[in-house]
């Protein structure tokens, strides 16, 4: 996935200016920056979640497999199956654990039989590291799970439709440290098969999970590079100020 010169306006207010950022396949890319810097806005551009925001305009080019995702022939529903999303607060549907994961494959008509659907649900829950904990209670409501389990259920739901890219908007900010560690471990596992973009307020989390990190400030992408470089030897003063806590 790639983006070039992306500008985003909310009405007259420019939220992002000229953001060019490569998102490498089967790698974890973290976006960091202070509140209001544009990182979540950028993330939402990647699966056109901003389309639902009144007055939002996006220009520039964002491509997935060299195809412009804002092109006229793009089916947004299909796009969001290819570019899934996990939100800050776990938001399982008010359905059973099974139905939460089965929802996507059903509406996209991805399976032909109940057995096949069972298989997709099981493999998604296994990939999300949740199968062992829920395999005997698949008919219980998703909301009956703990916060950390709910978030992993949402991740299972996102990957059930076999996306290429998974976007995560502060996926651990509502979780305790143990649940956070499990999600981080999961992100690491998932990166073998999926491209992951994560927005996080925790720099330690970015340092732990991401291969590449981008620092946003006031709607600009200030610096992008290997995570190790961003946290040990950033080139830009603003990045250095932010990661060290010396932000003037």
């Amino acid at each position: 996935m790639d983006s070039r010169n992306v500008d985003v306006y909310y009405g007259n207010k420019q939220a992002l200016s000229a953001v060019s950022l490569p998102i490498r396949q089967h790698r974890v890319t973290a976006l960091i920056g202070p509140s209001g810097c544009g990182k979540s806005t950028y993330l939402k551009c990647l699966n056109r979640m901003n389309d639902t925001v009144v007055g939002c305009r996006v220009s520039g080019s964002i491509t997935l497999d060299s195809e412009d995702i804002y092109g006229p022939s793009v089916d947004v529903v299909q796009l969001r199956a290819r570019v899934g999303m996990v939100f800050q607060k776990p938001n399982p549907f008010p359905k059973s654990i099974f139905d939460n994961v089965a929802y996507g494959p059903r509406i996209h008509g991805m399976t032909n039989s109940h057995a096949q659907l069972n298989e997709v649900v099981e493999s998604s829950l296994i990939k999300a590291g949740l199968w062992g904990e829920v395999k005997d209670r698949l008919q219980e409501p998703g909301t009956s799970l703990s916060g950390g389990q709910q978030q992993r259920l949402c991740i299972a739901r996102a990957i059930a439709v076999n996306p290429e890219v998974v976007l995560m908007d502060e996926p651990c900010s509502a979780l305790d440290p143990i649940a956070t560690a499990r999600v981080e471990e999961l992100i690491d596992d998932l990166s073998q098969n999926y491209t992951i973009v994560i927005v996080t307020h925790s720099m330690q989390q970015a340092a732990r999970v991401a291969h590449h990190t981008g620092f946003f400030h006031l709607g600009e992408l200030v610096e992008f590079g290997p995570t190790e470089v961003i946290f040990t030897n950033p080139k830009e003063e603003r990045t250095k100020g932010y990661v060290t806590g010396r932000f003037g």
């Binding site: 340092a207 040990t232 250095k240 060290t244």
Partner: peptide, 9 residues
């Protein structure tokens, strides 16, 4: 403190 960048160095 988890120092970063030049603080870490």
């Amino acid at each position: 403190r988890s120092p970063m960048a030049d603080d870490l160095r």
